[in-house]
Structures are given as structure tokens and as C-alpha cells.
Simulated assay, not measured.
Amino acid sequence: MLRGYEFNASDADIVLVSNDTEPFEFRVHKCVLAVASPFFRTMFSLSQPNNPGKPGSAGASLPHIPVSEPKRTIEGLLQFVYPIPDPAISTLEEVTTMLGAALKYEFECPVASLRKLLVSPHFLQSQPVRVFAIACRFDLDAEAKTASQYTLRVNVLDCPLSDDLKHISAYSYHQLLDLHRRRSRAARELIVYFPESVKCALCTGGVHAMFRSPRWWKEFESRAKERLAIAPTTDGIFEMEFLAECANAAECQRCFESLCSAWPFLQEMKARIDALPATI
């Protein structure tokens, strides 16, 4: 969170009181909250009961509005709303808490900023299943679709159990599992054909072996299908390191040459797999 700025304006006309053991009072401006939030705009248009603060406290004569969120959450939302730097948010826990509050109070700009942050590369690459669950929890369809594509890189059934999954429906989770199942099956079906023009001078060079596939292909087919069964994405399996492992496992001195000659074909195969449906 931003340090060095306190919401204690001398010209404040409303006080938000946090829900903490020691409640914190944010002295803020109705006009700012009304512009940022239809929720507060409607609230301020209605007759308000006189709910002053503690006698002797700063702003005791101003209307006080108790909120159910702690200081850290309200402070972060106000930093989004006021013309000061946005809060520094580094965890999905913070995103979830603040996004829930922003949606509750209809803070439109904070919601937009938090939605972008939710699908930032840092979170998508490190915790895609959690991002998917959070997006589904708040009915963020676009973000859920984006996150579902990133989950293809992991084994969803082997991810750490997260409390975020408690807040999504069985339907949403089934959508994700169905995406993985369908794409995995379709991707593995694409790794079945090998062009007869690609041969290995050693392991398919004899008369009796000329109609066989090179040994490296058999290794590639087996290993690639195994990976696609777990994470249905082309990440890794068409990189040279993985292909070299397949060639070495074939135990054929000329298989690497054959593999290199098949590079255009392998790239076409990768493109066909990448073109498969990748989101819920």
C-alpha cells in the first residue's frame, strides 16, 4: 500500500469507519465517492441519519458510515479512487478481497483496474487455476476464459487445493475439466501421422525397415502423448531440448539428422494443435 498519504482531509464531509478491532476513520469527500461509485451516489441522495463519531475525535461532527471491510481494503480502494498512485498489490489474496469490495460498492474504475491485475502475466503464469476460480466467483467471463487457456499448461488435478475453489460452481469447474479432456484427446489424435518422405539413414535405411518410422519419432510420439494427457499444450514438446531427448533415447546415431529434416512437418503439427479450442 501507498505510504505517506492519510485520508484525513480537513475539508472532508464524510467519514468511513473500517471494521477492525480498533476502527480506523477515513475522512473523505462525498463528491469523490459519488463520482466513483453509483452505490455511494445513491446513498448520498437519500436522507441520512445523524450518526456522528466519538466526541472529541477529529471529524466528530461529520456523518460516519461503518463499513464491513478492514482498513487495508478500504485504504486500497480509496487509493484507486483518489488522484494518487494506485496501491501496490502483490498477492491474489489482496486482489480477491479488494475486488469483492469494489464490486460491492460499485467502484467502477477500481473494478476495471483489478480485473486487469487479476489476469496479469505474473498471476496467470504462476497460479492460473486460482485466477480461473476467482474470475468465476465474481462472474468475470472474459477473465475466466483467459485463465482457462493458461490452465492448459498445468495438470489441474494435481494443483494445490485452494480455498478459491470453494466459491465456484460445479458447472464452472466441470467446464474447465471438460476443456482439458477434449483438448488433450484432440491433441493426441494429431500426433499419429509421419510423412513417409522423412527417413533415417540408419534405422530406416534397410529394405526391411524402409516402411517404418524412425526411432526418434516413436520416442517423440510416446513422450508427447504422455505430456499432452497431463497438460494439453504444445509448450515444451516442440522445443529442441525435448526433441533432442527423443533422438538420444532412440539410440540411433543418425536419428538427429532425420529429426532436423522433419522440422517443417513438426512445426505444422504444432500449429494444428495450437489451433484447437483453448478456452471454456
Score class of each variant (00 low, 15 high):
Ile74Glu: 07
Gly76Val: 03
Leu78Lys: 07
Gln79Pro: 03
Phe80Asp: 09
Pro83Thr: 14
Ile84Leu: 15
Pro85Thr: 04
Asp86Gln: 04
Thr91Gln: 07
Thr91Cys: 02
Thr91Asp: 07
Leu92Ile: 09
Leu92Met: 13
Glu94Met: 12
Val95Trp: 13
Phe107Gly: 00
Cys109Met: 15
Ala112Lys: 13
Ser113Glu: 05
Ser113Asn: 05
Arg115Cys: 14
Leu117Trp: 06
Leu118Tyr: 08
Ser120Ala: 15
Pro121Asp: 10
Phe123Tyr: 13
Gln125Thr: 10
Gln125Ile: 03
Gln125Tyr: 01
Ser126Glu: 12
Ser126Phe: 02
Arg130Ile: 12
Val131Ile: 03
Val131Lys: 01
Phe132Lys: 04
Arg137Gln: 15
Phe138Thr: 02
Phe138Trp: 13
Asp139Ala: 14
Leu140Ala: 06
Leu140Ser: 05
Leu140Arg: 00
Asp141Arg: 13
Ala142Trp: 06
Glu143Leu: 10
Ala147Asp: 04
Ala147Ser: 11
Tyr150Val: 05
Tyr150Phe: 15
Leu152Asn: 03
Val154Gly: 00
Val154His: 09
Asn155Phe: 06
Val156Pro: 00
Leu161Met: 13
Ser162Glu: 10
Leu165Gly: 00
Leu165His: 04
Lys166Met: 09
Lys166Trp: 08
Ile168His: 01
Ile168Asp: 01
Ser169Tyr: 08
Ser172Met: 06
Tyr173Thr: 07
Tyr173Asn: 06
Tyr173Val: 13
Tyr173Gln: 11
Gln175Glu: 14
Gln175Trp: 01
Leu176Thr: 12
Leu176Val: 12
Leu179Arg: 08
His180Pro: 08
His180Gln: 11
Arg181Leu: 13
Arg182Tyr: 02
Arg185His: 03
Arg188Ser: 03
Arg188Ile: 01
Glu189Trp: 01
